[in-house]
Amino acid sequence: MSIKRVGVIGGGQLAWMMAGAAQKLGVDLIIQTPHQDDPAVAIANQVIFASIDDANATAKLAEQCDVITFENEFIDLDALKKLEATGVCFRPSLSALSPLLDKYQQRSYLQNIGIPVPLFALLDNPSSLNFAFPVVVKARRHGYDGQGTFIINTSTELTALFQPLKDVPLMVEEYIPFEGELAIMAARNASGEVITYPVVETYQQDQVCRWVIAPANIAETVTIQAKQIAEHLLTQLDFVGIFGIEFFLTSEGKLLVNEIAPRTHNSGHYTLDACDVSQFEMQLRAVTEHPLGSSELNCLGAVMVNLLGYENSHHDYAEKRAKIAEIPHAYLHWYGKTESRLGRKLGHVTVLIKDTHTDPKAIAKTIESIWYCQE
């Protein structure tokens, strides 16, 4: 069938970065998002202003488009299933999303299909903990960019954490003293074709991604592990769309899945400039039944650095952006957000690596020295 109108639940920067791909593929984007100043409002062909978990608004969205996809997963799954039962086409399907939205259920599903994960358990109260410290406590829903994730070192810290979170469903998992953190983007279409992007190295600070290096400097056996896990998971879920998987790399060279994002993901932003088909185009290709195309790098490598808010202000940081843009082979993407606050993703910059002597970590540090050198 010819799919020309794609509904997107969510109007942040991930939807905003679909614009170029939508134009290239001749696709109209109809966005469901709550705020007039959300980034994707500027590029959408049509906008339904409503909360992303408003199923009545999604019903109106469905009337305007051929297929609905997702910019984020903070949805009312049960309400959307009623729409799906009437014939509304979601890609990925709600059955594919169902085991992933709750982190405990996600861990259980991965374990059941043979994918390696850290040891984990439900956490109903401090006295139920059966793990040695340190541990990682996570909110089971709605955590992202470090929100809802806590590294706990003592029973006192754990008890203190429970006071403000007593009504929040929690899980606990073992703390992994990892050698590194890796990620992979993978896509699958309705005919079952799976495409994987290069495995990348990520650097996190306070559970927020600061920068990404593509490709990761890892053994071929690790690359094979990551791709096999991605292909197995997408196939088991009968997933249609794109998927981000974050891993811990252990000292034994084994991978454990840390987090899953059933959508485009921060670790794949480098693909906008470093690949012929970006993750955003790949998502649209998958859900509109275009051939997936190539996920290969068009350069030796790339480094992507997030430009995170470090203060509460209304500022466009034009001078800092201009300095960063002067770096050779740099591509700066500014999301147009009007408010800066601590840790908020305001934009990112990707620098393409053109020769083997370039140190990607040095580039990342140069960008961060410009950005975080406060005025």
Rank of each mutant, 00 (worst) to 15 (best):
T202I: 14
Q205H: 14
Y197L: 09
E220Q: 11
I184Y: 01
S155C: 05
R210W: 06
W211K: 07
F162V: 12
L161V: 07
Q204P: 02
T156Q: 14
Q207D: 05
T196E: 04
D145A: 05
C209S: 09
Q207H: 15
F150W: 15
I195D: 01
L158V: 10
Q147C: 07
A160P: 09
R210G: 02
D145S: 06
R210F: 07
Q163Y: 13
A160F: 02
Y203S: 00
E181N: 11
A190T: 09
D206N: 15
V168N: 01
Q163V: 15
R188K: 13
M171D: 03
E181I: 10
P177M: 13
R140T: 09
E193I: 10
L161I: 09
D167E: 14
E201W: 05
L158M: 10
R188V: 04
A139P: 00
E181C: 11
K138N: 09
E220P: 00
A139C: 12
V194L: 05
G192P: 09
E174R: 07
F162R: 12
P215H: 10
V212Y: 01
M185H: 01
Y197N: 04
E174T: 14
V208N: 00
E201L: 13
G148W: 03
I218K: 00
Q163F: 05
R188P: 03
T221G: 06
P164F: 09
N189W: 06
N217Q: 14
P134H: 13
Y197A: 05
W211G: 01
W211V: 05
G192S: 10
M171I: 03
Q205L: 08
A160E: 14
W211A: 04
Q204M: 11
M185I: 15
C209R: 01
G148N: 11
I184L: 11
I213F: 02
N217P: 06
W211M: 01
Y203M: 11
Y197S: 08
